[in-house]
């Protein structure tokens, strides 16, 4: 790098630093359809595409047969409904999920479908199903567990209905997670991470008003979750 290059980089960095901070993007406004399960399918299909080595070659393949695509989509819906109806509030181990997945696929006449395990479930408390009709597979991925998910829905609503200070919000999250069997839950306090689909303006206003809310969750490379509390 020449001296000029170094000076130019410094000047670019100063200019860049002066640019006004953009507002948080509206993360979920473009998700299609009201059916959350259907959204789940879409998301899982994307995740499967992300993970499947085979999918890397998709761009080089001819366009899929529309009849096959339609059948895969219909099968995907059937699998999702079937598994979803049997796993509500569940916290399945990898073995339980594998057994159940295989049994249900066979019962639905989809013995040719495969069950694949995401590599990031080594220390997951629970696993759940991702369904991808395109690749005809059920993917086992880390899950916080249906029981925890349901409890967090209630916490999210509660924190939106009141104006909880930081420590109270964290304490509520921790006690709830612990009571459900989550050992030493990792909770982080952040700014706004994502804006929910519904009542996004109220969510932002609530935080800007000094209140702390549920900010979502994310698992790491071994399936351990971090839960977020979002605040100002």
């Amino acid at each position: 790098m020449t001296d000029f290059d170094a000076r130019l980089r410094d000047r670019f960095q100063r200019l860049d630093a002066a640019i006004p901070e953009p507002a948080v993007p509206v993360a979920s406004q473009t998700r299609r359809g009201p059916n959350r399960r259907r959204q789940g399918i879409i998301l899982v299909a994307a995740a499967a595409a992300l993970l499947a080595a085979a999918s890397l070659a998709v761009a080089n393949q001819p366009p899929p047969d529309p009849v096959v695509v339609a059948k895969n989509a219909a099968d995907e819906e059937r699998v999702l409904e079937d598994l979803g109806s049997r796993t509500d509030n569940a916290c399945l181990s990898r073995e339980q999920a594998t057994t159940m997945g295989r049994e249900r696929l066979d019962a639905l006449g989809l013995s040719n479908w495969t069950i694949r395990v995401d590599g990031r479930i080594k220390e997951a408390r629970c696993v759940t199903f991702g369904v991808s009709g395109d690749t005809q597979e059920v993917l086992l991925v880390a899950s916080m567990g249906g029981d925890v998910a349901k409890a967090l829905d209630q916490i999210a609503a509660k924190l939106m209905a009141t104006c909880a200070p930081r420590d109270d919000a964290v304490s509520l999250m921790r006690s709830t997670l612990t009571s459900l069997g989550v050992t030493d839950p990792k909770i982080e306090v952040t700014g706004i991470r994502q804006i929910p689909i519904e009542n996004g303006d109220a969510y932002v206003a609530h935080i800007k008003g000094g209140c702390y809310v549920y900010g979502g969750a994310q698992f790491d490379d071994v399936g351990r979750y971090t839960w977020f509390v979002s605040g100002p």
Binding site: R36, R37, Q39, G40, I41, L43, V44, A46, A47, L50, L51, L80, L83, G84, T87, D88, N89, A90, D118, T128, F129, G130, V131, V141, A142, S143, M144, G145, G146, A149, K150, L152, D153, A217, Q218, F219, Y225
Partner: peptide, 10 residues
């Protein structure tokens, strides 16, 4: 089960 919530890959 709420797969959209549970599946965190996305």
């Amino acid at each position: 089960m709420d797969l959209a919530r549970s599946v965190a890959l996305e």
